[in-house]
């Protein structure tokens, strides 16, 4: 993919095809340069190659979870803002994610406008 000059780069990672497509469409329409992944292994490999401004990741994704993705991002690109999304939101999980350095924690289901607002907020925080 050719990087588009000046655009904020967002990685979207979710093992649910429909969630990935929705996020890609909403954020792409909002002017973000979006790379979407359904396989967390591929996403982690991509994180080794490039720094994203924002990573939006699901928590529960088979053998790799969103907290591991968050840890990886903190290692390779500490300035990247990570937004955790999950269908299994619980108070302690939210606290753990924030403690590990997440920018925000969002429960599914969410509407497109809500997730866009969170990403916009993360984009503004330089």
């Amino acid at each position: 993919m050719t990087e588009q000059e000046g655009k904020i780069k967002v990685m979207v990672l979710d093992d649910e095809h429909i969630a990935v497509k929705t996020l890609q469409r909403v954020l792409g329409k909002a002017g973000y340069q979006v790379e979407a992944f359904e396989d967390p292994h591929q996403a982690l490999a991509r994180l080794e190659e490039t720094c994203f401004d924002i990573v939006v990741t699901d928590v529960v994704m088979g053998d790799i979870d969103g907290i591991q993705v968050l840890n990886k991002v903190r290692q390779v690109c500490p300035q990247t803002r990570v937004i955790i999304i999950t269908a299994f939101a619980m108070m302690e999980m939210a606290r753990k994610a924030m403690e590990k350095g997440a920018f925000d924690f969002v429960a599914k289901p969410f509407d497109a406008q809500a997730i866009r607002e969170v990403v916009d907020r993360a984009a503004r925080q330089d």
């Binding site: 939101a89 606290r95 924030m98 403690e99 924690f105 969002v106 969410f110």
Partner: peptide, 14 residues
């Protein structure tokens, strides 16, 4: 002031 007590979209919704 610890990060774990920061407001999130989820906690605000709750």
């Amino acid at each position: 002031t610890q990060p774990r007590y920061r407001e999130t979209s989820y906690s605000r919704q709750c």
